[in-house]
Amino acid sequence: MAFGVPIQLPRKEGIQTRYINFVYEAFREGSGLITGVMAVATDVTEQILATRKIEEAEERARLAIEAAELGTFEVNMDTDATLISERMAAIFDVPVDAKREEFIAAIFPEDLPIRNSAYKNAQENGVLDYDGRVQWKDGTIHWMRVRGKVIRNEEGKPNRLVGVVQDITEQKTFAEALAQQVRERTLQLEVKNRELERSNTNLEEFAHVASHDLKEPIRKILFFTDRLKNELAGKITESEERLFGRIELAGVRMRTLVDDLLQYSHVSQRPPEKELVDLAGKVKKVLEDLELEIEQKQAKITVGPLPQVLGYRRQLQQLFQNLITNALKYHKPGEAPQVTISSRVLKGSETPLLLNELEKEASFCMIEVADAGIGFEQAQAEKAFQMFQRLH
């Protein structure tokens, strides 16, 4: 007899390798004399190829189990007999031929209820799944992860349990160390938050006291300036009248700044409400405050039509003041500063903003402040908007 003999045979598709089983039997005459041989050939190519696929799949599974350092087990649920791999025995720190009771005895006592509950659930749903600890003979504790499947017989009764075991001690140790770091960092953040709250409280108290202390001298400056102007009425020139006007404007501006400082001290308690702000009026006030510097540098400020928008009046005015002040300060040597302020209405989809589909169809007002100054590198664009940062 010969089994699975490869033979090259012609077929419609060309020459193919087929696998043949040969059975030989002697042909005897009535007298018992052998006069020939009878041969029976059976094509078993499909069976051979199917067997090879199964062997290849088993080899891949074996390599995967070895690479993952998994232990394997099989339990006969009728006889309690076990088939254990060397890796599983090593994870439990017991001999490979140990009985099932020895494996159970190696489980950390506090985790036995978890193991028993998992086996009970496996009887019902067919899946064994739990993490637990084993205690080695040297007293050390190791974590394991058990995954398995219950196989039922033709009658639907569980009769085999097959599964794998993985040592997850390093994963658990890392997770515990990470959790400890998170707890420590959380505690540090709580301490920092308390310090920040205390600092904010001190800052609010300072701003509140400072603003109230500053209001009184400003009030007196405005009061006596107005009184002096009234007493000198008709005795001062037009130029002196303008100087009085500038003093009064500067005093009013200072009073507004103090009021804003007081409001800022309460920002953390209650955010300011948005209001309708006339941007043209805010820019006009900024230009009045910067009038002397604009005249000295012979700057050309061009202001186009500007809209009214919902926003924070003080922040918007400060924004324009910062932009125009920078343009006056960082102009090209030998050239008078030039600043252009304009606005245009755009659809949301035409802006660089990250918007939802509804916002993309909405209208937005883009305010542009351009100057012919020395500029800055584009790589520093983000830094320009950080607090207490200067690019030049």
Results as ranks from 00 to 15, higher is better:
Gly4Ser: 15
Val5Tyr: 08
Ile7Asn: 07
Leu9Arg: 07
Arg11Asp: 02
Gly14Thr: 03
Ile15Leu: 09
Gln16Leu: 02
Asn21Gln: 08
Arg28Lys: 10
Glu29Ala: 15
Ser31Leu: 03
Leu33Cys: 00
Ile34Lys: 00
Thr35Asp: 09
Thr35Phe: 02
Gly36Pro: 00
Val37Cys: 03
Ala39Trp: 02
Val40Gly: 06
Asp43Leu: 00
Val44Ala: 06
Val44Cys: 06
Thr45Arg: 04
Gln47Lys: 13
Thr51Ile: 00
Ala57Trp: 02
Ala64Cys: 01
Gly71Leu: 05
Asp78Leu: 14
Thr79Asp: 06
Thr82Ser: 14
Glu101Asn: 07
Phe103Trp: 06
Phe108Gly: 03
Pro113Thr: 13
Asn116Val: 14
Ser117Cys: 05
Tyr119Gln: 10
Lys120Gln: 13
Asn121Val: 12
Gln123Glu: 13
Gly126Trp: 13
Gly132Met: 07
Lys137Asp: 09
His142Ala: 08
Trp143Asp: 13
Arg147Asn: 13
Gly148His: 10
Arg152Trp: 13
Asn153Met: 06
Asn159Lys: 02
Arg160Gly: 05
Arg160Lys: 15
Leu161Glu: 11
Val162His: 04
Gly163Asn: 11
Ile168Asp: 09
Gln171Val: 13
Ala175Ser: 11
Ala175Leu: 08
Gln181Tyr: 05
Leu187Pro: 00
Val191Gln: 15
Lys192Cys: 02
Arg198Ser: 14
Asn200Pro: 00
Leu203Val: 11
Glu204His: 14
Glu205Ala: 12
Glu205Ile: 07
Glu216Asn: 05
Lys220Trp: 14
Ile221Leu: 15
Thr225Leu: 12
Thr225Ile: 10
Leu228Trp: 07
Leu228Gln: 12
Leu232Pro: 10
Ile236Ser: 07
Thr237Gln: 08
Ser239Leu: 05
Glu240Cys: 04
Glu240Asn: 06
Arg242Gln: 11
Arg246Trp: 10
Glu248Pro: 01
Glu248Gln: 15
Leu249Tyr: 12
Gly251Phe: 05
Arg253Trp: 03
Asp259Thr: 14
Val267Tyr: 14
Ser268Tyr: 14
Gln269Gly: 04
Gln269Cys: 03
Gln269Met: 10
Lys274Gln: 11
Gly281Pro: 00
Val283Ser: 03
Lys284Tyr: 06
Lys284Asn: 12
Val286Asn: 01
Gln298Ile: 01
Lys300Cys: 01
Gly304Trp: 03
Leu306Ser: 11
Gln308Leu: 05
Val309Thr: 07
Arg313Val: 08
Arg313Ile: 04
Leu316Arg: 13
Phe320Thr: 06
Leu323Ser: 12
Ala327Thr: 07
Lys329Asn: 11
Tyr330Met: 04
Lys332Ala: 12
Pro333Trp: 09
Val339Pro: 01
Ile341Ala: 10
Arg344Cys: 02
Val345Ile: 09
Lys347Asp: 04
Thr351Gly: 04
Leu354His: 04
Glu357Lys: 03
Glu359Ala: 12
Met366Asn: 03
Ile367Ser: 02
Ile367Asp: 02
Ile374Lys: 13
Glu377Pro: 00
Gln378Arg: 08
Gln380Tyr: 03
Gln386Ser: 11
His392Phe: 04
His392Gln: 04
